[in-house]
Every structure is written in C-alpha cells, then in structure tokens.
Design a protein around this nucleic acid. Structure first.
Lengths: 314, 314
DNA sequence: CCTATTGATGCCATTTTGGCACTAATCAAA
DNA sequence: TTTGATTAGTGCCAAAATGGCATCAATAGG
C-alpha cells in the first residue's frame, strides 16, 4: 500500500465517519485502517487526526489532505476511465457461481445485458447452493449469501439481506394474525434446510435491543427458496424469507408481511467473492454491472415491497 | 504497490527511455519494473507498451496514461508539499555515518545549514572509513562510496564518482609527463589502503572499449585521502584521486590532471543508504538537503575542475 | 455511573515484493 | 550473414509487508 492508497483510505474514513464503517465497506479489519493511517501520518510528518479511543476529528492538516485526497481520487478515476476507452474488446470465459435463486433472478438479466455489449465474452454460470471452492474450480467470481468465511478470498458486500415474515391472506384468515413473535411457534412454517445448513429459528432484537432467537415450527423444509415460496403461496405455511426471493407478491397482495413491528436481524448480506485483489477487466466490468443493477443503498428487490424501509425496524 | 505507483513507474520508465535506467534510478531490479508494468497493463486492461525483447515504444493508450501519470505525480507532489507546511518542527536525533573526507567536506556544510533551519534536531555524525552495520548501530542514514552491498538496505545513488590522475607541476618537471597509461608504472604513486581494502591499480577502457587495469607503483599508502592529497601536493607522488577529494587545487594550477585522454572507469558512486523504505521527516529533509547541495547531474566538486566534462572520456 | 463501542497494539499466518539466475530475442557491428 | 552484447521476460526463493485476530484501554452515551 502506498501513499496514494493511504490518502484514499483517509478520505473514506472521513466520509464514513469512523474507522469501523470504512473497514466494513472495504471488508478489511479496522486494525488495518489504524495502522495505515498511522503510517500515513508518519510519512507526511503531520498529525492528521485528533483521536480519542472511540472517535476522531480532523486536524487542519487532515482537512487539507482530505481535500487533496478527493482530487487524487478524481484524477485516478479519470485515468482509469481513460484507459477503459482503449480497452480491448473483453473476451474469454467468465466463470461465475451463485446460489440458485439469486443467480436466476438477478444475475441472469445482468448477464444478458453484458453479453449484448460484449459478445466475445463467454459466460459459464454454475448455480449451486452449496459452498464451492472457487479457487480450485477456477471461478472468477462467486456470489454468496450470509457471512464470508474463507479469508484467503476477497469478499465485498454488494447488498444487505433483510428478512420478512410472510403468509397469504388465506393463511391469516385460517390461522389468525399472530400478535407477538412468540405466537409463531403455534403456526406452521416453511423453512430452508440443506445438508449443510438448517434454518430453525428467526433472530430479532427485543424491545431492549437484545438479540434473541425465536424457534420455528417447520412443517416443510426444502433447499430451494422458490419451492418454499410456492408452498407459502399455497396458504399452508408462513415463511421467514429474505427479501430477495420476492417478486411482486407483496405489492400485489398475494403475500402479507407479518409482525412488521418486530426488529428482525439481517441475515448476513450478499457478497461478491473473488480470488485476487486485482480483477481482470472482464470480471470487473461484470462485477460493476451487477452492482449497478442491484442498486447502491436499497437493493432492487426491496423496491417491490411497499414501505419496506419502515417495516421490521422495531 | 498500488496503481498510482505503477503509473509513476511507467512515467519514469518512459522518461528514462529503458527499464534498466529506470531501475537504476530507483535502485531496484529490472525484473520488478517488468512485473509491475505487466500488472498495470492487466489492471487497466490495456496494452501500454509495444515491446521487443530489447526496447519498447508507447502505444496510444500508453501515451495517454503517461500524461495522466505526470498529472498524478504533480498532484501527489503538491499534496506532500502541502503537508510539509504543517510539519511539526522536526526534532529528535539524526544519526549519520559517512566516510571521513566526504563527511567533513560535504556533509558538514549541509548539517550547519540544516541545524540553522531546524534547531531542534540534534545531529550525530560518525566519520569512519570502515563499513558500519547501520541497522544494529541505529543509524538513520549512511553515505558510502563504491557499490552498495547489503541488499537488506535501501541504497540511492546521489552522485557519480569520477577519478583523475593528478600530480604537481614540479612532479611533472622532475619525472616527465607520462605519455601512455603504461608509463605510470615507472612513476611513484600515492594510493589508498586500509585494513579491508587496497587500491593497487587504475581501471580504464582501452581504445577498443575493453576494461583494463593498470597496476600502480605505490610508494605511499594511507587510509586518509587528505593525507594522500598532501603527499601529492608535496610533489613526490602522483595520485589517482576521486574528484570529490579536490578543492581548488586544479583550478589554481597546483595540481595537473595527467593522461586526460584515457577513459577512466568511475569508481562506483556515492550512495546514501538507509534502513527503511519510508523515511521519517527529519531524515528525508536532511537527505533532500544533501542532494540539493551536491547537485543533480554534475556533483559540486566537479565544478571546481575546469573542463572536467571533456577529460578522461577516451 | 456503567457498559458497549471504538481505536490501538502485538503477534502470527499469508501474501506480496524484490532479487537472482537464466532465457529469449533483437539491435548493431563486423 | 553472423556474432556478440544488451535488454526485457520468467520462475524461483528469501524477505518484507499486509491483513486478521485477540486483547487492551478509554470514552461516549445512556
């Protein structure tokens, strides 16, 4: 890491407001930020931040450096964009793996677009809900849901993964509307289960902000979210579903969110995972296309759920 | 190394005209340049250089990138200079070691200046002609003559080290003016000799450009260049001297360069050596001050030798 | 006044870097 | 055309830098 990268890191820290947030955005440890900024200060011979143990403020010098860092980022961006004008037509094979539903629903349209623009890129998409060793199998890019584990890979969060508790109006008529989260134990649930992994409860924060888990009474388990959704639509179970499995079911009233005043915990996030620090062009172009398609703050799937920003916030 | 550094490397390569020269300027191996530029190309997805095995030319994209790299260097320089405005008054101890004569003659004035400007910096100068382990003895900066050996240290060439063959007019009258370099064996020489190291001959290129060495007939040996110079001035020996030992002896006619049509080999160079890649501020400021004092292409001591650029060039 | 949060730090595993030796190819001179 | 010197590329290895984890210390915020 060089002076420029450190300056950009400083900029990000200031924009995010804390070391931790900046570290999360970059998917690195906060200690890295701490160490690199210390080195930057040593290198420039200037104290950039006034720190307390829990926060910081910019010094005058720091503020100037942040301005310059912004200019640097701009110039560097220009440079890269300029290089892009000279890009060879990207070509070769792009090997991607993803969980089945996410791939079908959200990667497919991006791939279509991408191949229209870059016809010489072949795409190989492996849909598989098991975790795959992307290095040994030679994948360029993987999309995973939950928390990234293998730290030898680079993981970048590309979207949050909020949950909903869903049932059909018929279901509510038949079983009654649950009033508290504990009521869920009395109701039949459909839940995800694969060989390696089972959803057995729903995590939430109680009114004191403490993390809790409510067990579920699963009468139907499957390792395919679409199947679970179909089961739910049949009216014979409710479903604790990640928002991304939904299409227009809520907007059209076919499914109703239950217990929307409970603050549900997010189920990890959607991560893009790749093996090397520097992506080759075709991979980066595709990666950028996916991010653009999904959206920056609010993922595309959440926009189909009316008022979702206010739901499940406690 | 990040993209910016690689762009700056590209810029330097283009400015220097070859990988090798750029590598020499930075005191790194050419392979590093080759590898880093390849990575830059991969990263930008653009071929920047058309290569043959022995040379290269810029592609259109490469030319654009070089322009941008120049802008980046400018902006980065501005940023650093801006940081310097906020520098804390440098303070602390600066431990320097150097060969005796070089230190006395060329570091002393720089140190005086430096301490006028930064009174809070204490300087410890150790003059010693033996090679010192700068890491274990805690030196910040060392100045060495010859070729850098210890590759765990960073060495930067700060001046070339050209040689002359000198004698007094009296000496020439008494012994006759040598016509060929072989004549030197007939004449009494003063030469450098320490416990670890002896000068026994003078290296040069013959008219075919082949490296040769002419043995000397040393009648006086010492490990102190000033003593050798005094001996020479007494008229009883000639002296194969590095240019930096001279003051105004040549300009004032007290010493005369002999055999100026022989192409003498440079005796290594003057190197600054330091232990870490990133210098702390006080060290870097001092280092810069030394470089400014010595001069960029032609070292300060060569300017006192009339017409030296044309002498000993074969 | 307490406690969870945040930044700093030391240690360790992993990755990256830089150097060396060797290869390959070309430029230039005979 | 041949030959030799020069210069870039490559694989391998040792050394350095990086990133992550666990721990510490101190405060911001209730």
């Amino acid at each position: 890491m060089d002076t420029t990268s450190r300056l950009l890191m400083l900029l990000e820290v200031v924009e995010q407001g804390s070391f931790i947030k900046a570290a999360e955005v970059r998917n690195i440890d906060r200690s890295v930020i701490s160490k690199q900024l210390s080195r930057l200060e040593e290198q420039l011979g200037v104290r950039l931040l006034n720190r307390t143990t829990r926060s910081f403020s910019l010094t005058a010098a720091g503020a100037e450096m942040v301005k310059k860092a912004a200019e640097l980022r701009e110039l560097l961006g220009e440079t890269v964009r300029m290089a892009e004008n000279y890009h060879l037509e990207p070509q070769g094979v792009l090997k991607i793996t993803s969980s089945t539903l996410f791939g079908k629903r959200y990667l497919q349209p991006v791939i279509n677009d991408f191949q229209m623009r870059f016809p010489q890129v072949e795409v190989e998409l492996r849909l598989d809900d098991r975790v795959i060793d992307i290095v040994s199998e030679g994948f360029d890019l993987a999309f995973r849901i939950g928390e990234p584990k293998d730290s030898s890979l680079i993981a970048r969060k590309i979207a949050r993964n909020r949950l909903l508790i869903l049932a059909t109006p018929t279901f509510i008529t038949n079983y009654g509307m649950p009033k508290t989260i504990e009521d869920l134990t009395q109701l039949p649930a459909a839940s995800y289960a694969s060989t390696s992994f089972k959803v057995e409860g729903v995590r939430y924060y109680d009114k004191n902000g403490e993390a809790k888990e409510q067990k579920l009474n699963s009468i139907f388990r499957a390792n395919d979210a679409e199947v679970l959704l179909m089961k739910t639509l049949s009216g014979s179970a409710f479903f604790v579903a990640p928002a991304f499995v939904l299409d227009n079911e809520v907007k059209e009233g076919r499914l109703v969110p239950l217990l929307t005043d409970v603050r549900l915990m997010e189920y990890g996030a959607i991560y893009a995972v790749y093996p090397h620090r520097d992506l080759p062009v075709r991979t980066r172009l595709f990666f950028d296309a996916v991010r653009e398609y999904l959206g920056k703050d609010i993922p595309i799937w959440e926009r189909a759920i009316p008022n979702f920003e206010q739901l499940y916030t406690g």
